[in-house]
Design a protein around this nucleic acid. Structure first.
Length: 488
RNA sequence: GCUCCGGUGGUGUAGUCCGGCCAAUCAUUUCGGCCUUUCGAGCCGAAGACUCGGGUUCGAAUCCCGGCCGGAGCACCA
């Protein structure tokens, strides 16, 4: 086409990875981080941050750092130091490195001093309200004009001052159109015992300071964070600028609204303390350990978060969606069993088939897994809710007619059941059964009997109780199996 | 209130940068059918969307302006 002088359009290749948009900036030697505050175990909301970071690292063979942001002793829950890596592991995420910001205070002090020496930060002794008043009117506070020497002197004395009497501020633009950006706080005094540091330090970095210093020092190529950090990214850019550092690619993603579980970590903690919840893995909580306990496959969460991606628009995820995706993982692995809630013993009148062993496959699509055997001799347990007048087929056994308290033999073949449109119901053998308790997602329980073959299961196995739903075996007691309910 | 950011079926996404191949992708959901055996599973099929109004253009989900709706931030928390 050149000879006609026509520009041939040169569109960008559209070979995008499925589910997660391509990372802007470099793809070589990328370094990403997941940086939670250790205030509790990870919940679904955290996976919003952890999964895309991990997935990009995986795709580009980069490096993932788990950085524990424990620079506010009031918001550190000590067991979280252990729980967070466990939760990540469950998600299938293995950080290449783990760092704790509480190990890095000296580094932050060093950079704070450098900033002061550059005239890019100053010690501010105004009280908060006064500063805010001035700031809101685009006015610098008197401290802003202190000399470098005065600032260094105050910085040296900082540790001896009373908490609240002074802070270190980073100079930005006192007339910045967003008041939040104007001369933000980098360091403050905290008189609180830190779980890892004890009372070793009183000068604590603010998140914006420690994060920016660390992101630079650790060589982050991309910084993924929620859009609630939009203003913080803006603040941090001033620090990069003062120090002459290259900016990483900042990527902000929208809020994740999770149906039903608006439970914050602090509310969950309060509920655990007052006994409302059984623990961090209470089925009502949105923690990863809670949904793991219910038999949700980690890939369900990983894939869902990957699909949602890192766009700026908010998204709402529903349990229906999670269950729908999870079912695809559970369906092929979960063997089928009979369970009867509130079992009622019935005796089939006029049954003369004798004692038979009924065999049913563990999984209709995977016959190689073998069969379970359900002995039947005219008596069985039925779920209370299944008992009503009419003709029913005790699955794979016999067809019965129920009339009030009377249960009588009708026929045996499936064809007979079909011809009268008998509903098929599950039953549990009298001779071979086991007590079963199912803890539902609202923490209520269903108790009843399950078929004897359930005794072969191990903790962690997920089964499908026919017509009830999927459930994970959580505990084997002497006389009872305890399952946690996943979903239908 | 101020600053900023979004808006594709019920939900989550693809497509938007570089307008035509989009009477719009895939998943979930809902509904219907099937199934010698789960009328709560499975299989098959169907339904359902470009926030609104202008503008530019031969042509707009895509570009421009405005409205509406939604969200975030405005800490000595992260």
């Amino acid at each position: 086409m050149e000879k006609y002088g026509v520009e041939v359009e040169d569109k960008k290749p559209k070979a995008k990875e499925v589910g997660l948009q391509e990372l802007p900036g470099t793809h070589e030697n990328i370094v990403l981080r997941f940086a939670p505050n250790p205030s509790g175990p990870l919940h679904i909301g955290h996976s919003r941050a952890a999964v895309p970071n991990a997935e990009y690292v995986k795709r580009h063979n980069g490096k993932l750092i788990l950085r524990v942001e424990d620079t506010d002793p009031k918001r550190v829950f000590e067991p979280a130091y252990e729980m967070i890596p466990e939760d990540l592991e469950w998600l299938g995420i293995k950080p290449d490195e783990i760092v704790y910001q509480s190990d890095r205070f000296e580094i932050y002090y060093d950079y704070a001093r450098q900033l002061i020496e550059k005239g890019a930060a100053y010690m501010c002794t105004c009280d908060g309200a006064t500063f805010k008043e001035l700031k809101d009117n685009c006015q610098a506070c008197p401290c802003r004009d202190n000399s470098v020497e005065e600032n260094l002197e105050l910085w040296e004395k900082f540790n001896t001052m009373k908490a609240g009497d002074a802070v270190l501020r980073v100079k930005t633009d006192i007339a910045h159109k967003n008041p939040a950006i104007r001369d933000w706080v980098a360091m403050r005094l905290v008189d609180e015992t830190h779980p890892r540091l004890g009372n070793k330090f009183r000068i604590y970095p603010m998140m914006n300071f420690s994060v920016a210093v660390d992101d630079h020092l650790m060589g982050m190529t991309h910084v993924l964070r929620g859009k609630d950090h939009l203003a913080n990214s803006e603040k941090q850019k001033y620090l990069y600028d003062h120090m002459g550092w290259d900016l990483p690619e900042f990527i902000h993603y929208g809020r994740l609204k999770m149906e039903d579980i608006a439970l914050s970590t602090s509310k969950a903690m309060a509920g655990i303390e007052d006994g409302t919840y059984s623990g961090w893995d209470d089925p009502r909580l949105g923690t990863l350990r809670a949904i793991a306990r219910r038999g949700i496959d980690p890939r369900t969460i990983y894939n869902l978060i990957t699909e949602i991606g890192v766009k700026m628009a908010d998204s709402a995820i529903s349990w229906k969606k999670i269950y729908g995706l999870n079912r695809n993982f559970l369906e092929p692995v979960a063997n089928r069993y009979f369970f009867c809630e509130e079992p009622q013993l019935i005796s089939v009148e006029n049954y003369d088939g004798g004692k038979v062993d009924i065999e049913r496959p563990l999984h209709a699509d995977h016959l190689d897994r073998g069969n379970r055997i359900l002995p039947f001799d005219g008596k069985a347990y039925l779920a209370k809710r299944d008992i009503s007048d009419g003709i029913f087929r005790l699955m794979d056994a016999v067809n019965v007619e129920i009339n009030g308290d009377n249960v009588s033999y009708h026929s045996t073949s499936f064809e007979d059941a079909r011809s009268v449109k008998a509903r098929i119901i599950q039953w549990v053998p009298v001779e071979d059964n086991v007590n079963v308790k199912i803890v539902m997602d609202d923490a209520s329980t269903k108790t009843g009997l399950g078929e004897g073959a359930l005794k072969d299961l191990e903790v962690g196995n997920v089964v499908q109780f026919e017509r009830v739903g999927f459930a994970r075996l959580d505990e084997i007691k002497d006389d009872e199996l305890i399952f946690y309910y996943a979903h239908k």
